[in-house]
Write a protein that binds this DNA or RNA. Structure first.
Lengths: 208, 208
DNA sequence: TCCTGTGAACAACTTCACAGCG
DNA sequence: CGCTGTGAAGTTGTTCACAGGA
């Protein structure tokens, strides 16, 4: 049985809601409640969870701490993952200060081509020259590389990361990356989301 | 006939590819070429474009400048859209320097609650106190609000924007926003994308 | 009775395959 | 011939509706 692409995305949403409920000390949660918090249907919540086994109790609901723990495991968030950041520009700098640690991601190093940035330490993370990317990635045993470089440098940066033995890439560059080896790539498309918003606003105006 | 949710997202990708080809002076593009650049199938490109009329020539392809112009129109990117930014933290500051202008988005003002930030001017954009959000949004005729505040402040910020007559919201906060009026909301989920990556890396390890 | 887990129906989206036009 | 546009088929994802356990 194979997972819908969005099931994992929703699992992440469920997790965030469970975090909130957990802080409040809630011990039991029903699919309906979780669904309501995440703005999806309750049957979808049950379906999503059922892909990974039955952790609910019929007539009762789900044990919250247990469910939360299980999702953390499923998503591989129960162990520390080492990350490097490529490109210490606007977005890159913001990412160095992003609280990824809350989910067990640890940024080990950053890379940039600008000599003025090399040697800087931001939020405890040192900036190294871009040429060191594959060497350090490999030495430190890094699993994830974040690409926050200009689009024209994105492919080359990805190549260096892959060479360093990376397993996955999160790219903020707005062009498709062609990995030299088979690694997982995920995109964050800030400009695209804004453009979609523009379309939908335009669409509504047209309908009126 | 209604559009698949992803057609618009892909339109944005096509546009980006067309920009590149346009700069190279290319005049004619075939669905296959565009498909190849965007890593989708050629029939999908044709289907996506066909929702908006036939702008291709059979046996030939698409006139590039014409197609590009048409997509800009469809997405409402052919006119300036006014934007405000709420929350001048890490991400917010990065967004103030983001080249949104390339697609006709103009950030008119930023808002924050921190007195130390109020009055600052970043990349030509002035930071105002958060209380002014709805007043200024309304006065300036702003269409889009970007939310880059902590999650606990996201809903209140959205309310202020909606009160100011906003049409759409781009939120970087990782919680669903419940708009008081019917506005378009689009999310950028940085942490979620990283978590999805984590899942997929874990998944691959399990398969080995 | 309440709520989960899940076949079966339904809906959405993509690809196939080819007619038709330049 | 080459490439678009598009019905029809195929695939994927979601909801319905209910059996069954607590």
């Amino acid at each position: 049985m194979k997972l819908p692409r969005n099931t994992i995305r929703r699992l992440s949403h469920y997790l965030r809601c469970l975090d909130i409920l957990d802080l409040k000390g809630v011990q039991l949660v029903k699919s309906r409640e979780l669904a309501c918090m995440c703005r999806v249907s309750d049957s979808l919540v049950r379906r999503d969870l059922s892909y990974f086994g039955d952790f609910g109790k019929k007539g009762v609901g789900y044990n919250l701490p247990e469910l939360r723990e299980r999702i953390l495991q499923i998503m591989g968030l129960d162990k520390v993952r080492k990350v490097v950041l490529c490109g210490v520009g606007n977005i890159g700098t913001a990412l160095l200060r992003y609280p990824f640690k809350e989910r067990n991601f640890e940024i080990m190093a950053a890379f940039d081509t600008d000599p003025k940035k090399i040697g800087m330490v931001i939020n405890g993370i040192r900036v190294y020259p871009a040429e060191k990317t594959s060497e350090l990635t490999s030495e430190l045993g890094v699993e994830i590389g974040i690409i926050a470089v200009p689009p024209e440098a994105a492919q080359k940066t990805a190549d260096l990361l892959v060479e360093g033995g990376i397993e996955g890439i999160l790219s903020f560059a707005l062009i498709p990356i062609e990995p030299k080896k088979d690694v997982v790539i995920q995109y964050v498309e800030i400009a695209t989301e804004l453009e979609i918003l523009s379309f939908e606003i335009e669409e509504r105006k047209r309908r009126r």
